[in-house]
Each structure stands twice: as C-alpha cells, then as structure tokens.
Design a binder for these strands. Sequence first.
DNA 1: ATGTCTTTGTGAACGCGTGCACAAAGATGG
DNA 2: CCATCTTTGTGCACGCGTTCACAAAGACAT
Lengths: 256, 256
Amino acid sequence: MATGRTHRPATRSRGIPEATVARLPLYLRALTALSERSVPTVSSEELAAAAGVNSAKLRKDFSYLGSYGTRGVGYDVEYLVYQISRELGLTQDWPVVIVGIGNLGAALANYGGFASRGFRVAALIDADPGMAGKPVAGIPVQHTDELEKIIQDDGVSIGVIATPAGAAQQVCDRLVAAGVTSILNFAPTVLNVPEGVDVRKVDLSIELQILAFHEQRKAGEEAAGDAGAVPPVAARKQQPATDQGPDGDVPAVMPA
Amino acid sequence: MATGRTHRPATRSRGIPEATVARLPLYLRALTALSERSVPTVSSEELAAAAGVNSAKLRKDFSYLGSYGTRGVGYDVEYLVYQISRELGLTQDWPVVIVGIGNLGAALANYGGFASRGFRVAALIDADPGMAGKPVAGIPVQHTDELEKIIQDDGVSIGVIATPAGAAQQVCDRLVAAGVTSILNFAPTVLNVPEGVDVRKVDLSIELQILAFHEQRKAGEEAAGDAGAVPPVAARKQQPATDQGPDGDVPAVMPA
DNA sequence: ATGTCTTTGTGAACGCGTGCACAAAGATGG
DNA sequence: CCATCTTTGTGCACGCGTTCACAAAGACAT
C-alpha cells in the first residue's frame, strides 16, 4: 500500500535517452572550458577525452540532438554550447529554493556552480526562527512559514532539500503542494512524491558505502595472491564457502 | 592522449552486479530503521516499499548474496543487516580523509551519516595555512603538507575531495601516490586516475541540470496541449532551423 | 501426517545502453 | 574537377538490468 511514485518511470523524455541527458552537462562543461580558451572547433575524439567518455558514445549522444557536426572537421564549439544549453533548458532562468540551511545548505548556497548555469537561488529557508534574517551567501534566510508564498510568488519549480532526514518528507510534501515539480534531495530518506514530480537524490553515505565495497573487494583479492590487473573476471560463481558455515548456518554475530 | 582510467570498467566485483551494490545501502538503511523498531522479520514486499524499489528486484538483489530468507515468512531483519553490512565491508573501520575544508568540506566533516556506518574521519586537510589547527567538527584541520604522512600512518584508503575544481586533479594525484585507492570527488572536474583506483563523483550542478531538462520538458509538453503521456517520440530529425542562422552562426546568448 | 496458504528464489523474455566498425559526407590539395 | 584524407553519423550485435510469472519451500493448522 501507499506505493507513491518514487522513481521516474523513465518516460523517455523526447527521443533523448536518460543516460544521454545525464552526460550532456559533462559535455557542456568541457565545451565551456574550450570556449573560454577560444578554441573554435573540436573533434569527437578530443571532446570525449576531455569529458572522460568513449568517443563513439559521445557521437551517438550528439546524434540524438541532431546533426551538428561537420565531417572531416568536428564540432563548432560555440554552436554546440548553445545547442546543449538549449536542450537542457539552461537558456532560461530557474529560480531555486534551498530548504534547510545547516552546514550543507550553506555550502549549497555558496556554491558557484549554480549561478554560472541558469540557476538562481530565489530563497533560503530554515525551520529555526533564530536563523531568520541572518544572511547566508548574501541572502537572508527566511522562515519555513514563508515557503508557500515564496514558491508561488517567484514561480519556483525546483526545490533543494538539505534538512535532516526526519523533516525531509514533510518539507517535500509542502514543496510539492506549493507547486514544485522537481526536487533535489540531500536528506538520507526515500521521498514519496506524486506522479509527475521528479526526484533526484544525492546521498553521501551511500557513495562511501559503494566505495567501501570495492575497497574491500580489492583487499580480498590482493590477499588471495592475485597481483595482476585483470583477474579471471567472468564465471566466479562460487560463494566464499571457506568463510563460515554452509548456507543456512549463522556466523558468530547474530540477531537476538 | 593520456586516456587514464576514469570510469571503473565494471569489473563486476564478485557475482554481485554493480546495480545491486548501489542498492544495498538503501536496503541497509531501511532494515536499520526496522531493527530500531525491533521488528523481527520483514517480507520482500514491505522492505521494497520502504526502500522505494520493486519487490522482485529486491529479491533478485538478495539472491546474489545467498538464500537468506524463509519462504512463507520473509527475512530476518537482524540477520540481513549483518549480511549486507558484511558484504559492503562495513564491519570494519574505514579511515577517511577529507581534503578541502571550505563550506562543503565542513559540511561533510559534520555529517553524521559517516560515523554511523563504519567510516571515521581520520583527518581534515586544507591548503590554506590559516586554517591549520582550527577545529572543524571537533577535528583540527591540517595542512596539505601532512597529507602523505597521514595517509600512510593511518592506512587511509578512501579520500574525499572537496576542493575547488582547479586543485582537484593535483590533490587526486597526491592521494593516489600516497596509497589511496578510492576517491569520492565533489569537485566539478573529470579526474584522471590509474587503473585500480575507483572514483565516484557527486556533482551538484549536474543534478540540477538534469532536473532542469525534465522540468523544461514538462513545461513544453503542457504548452503543446498534449495532455496524454507519450507524445510522438521517435523520428524527430529536423533541426530547429527556424531558430537562428545556419550552422556556423552563433545565436544571441553566448559566452564572452 | 497431510493439506493449505504465504512468500521466496529464479528462469526467461524484454528493453536499454554501450561499443565496434564502416559507409557516407565533406574538407583540402593538386 | 577529381583524388585523398579526415571525421562524423549510425546499423548492428552484445551484455547488463529489470520485470514477469511461477514452481518450490517452508510455516501453520487440523
């Protein structure tokens, strides 16, 4: 019960695959750097290297946007910057509210990467009345009571949640009710949102845990005496049966 | 040239798919919450709802770890918490260094989600000599000069980069040279690392740009009067020739 | 012991994303 | 105008991840 939409059903936005959309900002960044160095054109090979991807993938990605390259030459940097910006919707202004001005919220408010793209911090919001009026990154913090008013007055459609986990769902509900349809969630919780609302989450703890997994694996393999780079990758199905008892058996540390 | 490893070649760690590994922390969090409420067992359906995923996917994920459930009953919460923790390598202590103690670095240092898992902040490092000795989150900041010594003394294998983009690669190189083999990168740059080093990146700006794309799409579809879900998706190859000049021409909005 | 009922574990089908490899397009030089 | 050379755009095949749907496994009641 209560299986509210949580994952975007991958509606396959236009023709553009989600994986490609996720890479466009990467290309844009590399292109912007080239633009600042006044480089007129760039080949798929060069740009791919700068963005850290495969050149074939890059060309396929661009092919979804249209035929913007010139065979034998490459891509016009300025033109491509514009096309990608337009595709991502960065040619317009996106007012954003940040809710929860703790350490992380303040860091976000100060982050320069927002303004340089089309993003503008419309308001900083915190539940602590003591914070009200205190300027962070040159913007006075406002109390949660003002949330609905701000969103409606400024036509905010993107909200950033940087509150503790306990408050996140409640904040999310209020944001959505007030008209926000895209949410960037930094709180370590699964947010429940109605259909049509996009949620992306950034979870520091999860990223570290994934790294720990790989780290452990490296250590384990090393201990196994396998010094070479690429170990017998495929077909390793056996369980670490040497570890503890057989399947059903419970290792030392156990439930009460 | 210099196409150093940047993406993990999906070495397919053990039998466990990368996608599954990425979800394990999610399950772990949901299970921990249940554990705190002293819930003894949980069905795949319930747990899947709590973690915001499909129940079939969850069962398949768990099947990679082994047969830890009981048919007709579900999964033993405590047991599963242990198994996942062990699989992720959280039963051991992971010392972590955070480099770049600006707003974001400070936020990370204060983030509680680390300690609760097996992660311990071994050191905070900043290039600014004025920061040296100043305590952040109860830990005195140390100067970059100490970096190598700290890593070797504490056996640090995970590093977090929260520096400006310009310094990231240099910091990365030093971390790797000193023995770090997993890096969590918050700087908006593509990091170049040798084989065997894992990099995960968290990019605030990119996440917002992806949201903007979907937001623009929603707005566009609404304006097109297309209330239905799936618009004529495929086969849109024509350029927006009505927009501006031909290929080489640069539209109005442009960088300096 | 036997039957019923719940829930897991997984075989199989499908769709998306990736990468190879090459034909077509255009630039450039003679 | 033709030949050559570079680089794009993409058809195709492959592998990973997701989902469905169901048989097998066990709990529980009688």
